[in-house]
């Protein structure tokens, strides 16, 4: 056992169980563990990112029971029994989700860091509004920051993705 072994000196911790990308998972977590930490550190799903500490940037958006949620703003234990999906669960094999494909087709990403949150958020927009206008897309993205694209191609991607999701 190395000195860094995380199991050393641990008190008995509560267990959290949920479904993530269709798979049942269950782990002991410290009660203060955020959902995003649980996904990244316990499950190794590092596609969900942390870009801020004030719930502003949206890099951490996942779906909890089908709705978009900022996984930095909820505890893992609040997702007990929930159905969580992350960016890793969107594509089917090699086939990208239409929203992923639309981002690729329209150069809707550059450094890629905000992208998982953007895509997850965009899919939830289309769930609630299957034919959004450009203005509606821009307003919906209020909670997602991108520093690379100037949003021009993200908006274009989401409009195209919304269309493709209808097809």
């Amino acid at each position: 056992m190395t000195r860094g072994d995380p199991t050393r000196r641990r008190k008995k911790m509560p267990t959290v169980s949920m479904t993530v990308n269709g798979k049942s998972v269950s782990s002991e977590v410290e009660p203060r563990t955020l959902l995003v930490q649980y996904l990244r550190e316990n499950l190794g799903l590092t596609g969900t990112h942390v870009g801020c500490d004030t719930s502003q940037c949206g890099a951490c958006v996942v779906h909890v029971n089908g709705e978009s949620a900022k996984s930095c703003t909820m505890l893992a234990m609040q997702a007990e029994g929930s159905d969580v999906s992350t960016i890793e669960g969107l594509a089917e094999g090699d086939t990208l989700h239409p929203m992923q494909e639309a981002f690729r087709d329209n150069h809707g990403l550059q450094c890629g860091f905000c992208t998982p949150g953007m895509v997850m958020s965009a899919i939830d927009l289309v769930r609630t509004n299957n034919n959004p206008s450009e203005q509606e897309v821009r307003e919906w993205l209020e909670g997602n920051l991108c520093r690379c694209t100037g949003y021009h191609n993200i908006v274009k991607s989401i409009l195209a993705g919304a269309k493709a999701m209808q097809g």
Binding site: R40, T46, G47, V50, I87, L96, G112, T115, P116
Partner: peptide
Amino acid sequence: KRVEDRRFLTGRGNYTDDINQPG
């Protein structure tokens, strides 16, 4: 179309905070 997009779009980028070493 960008070669790098697929890994970013599927959550398989390899950013520094994604890296963990044993111990």
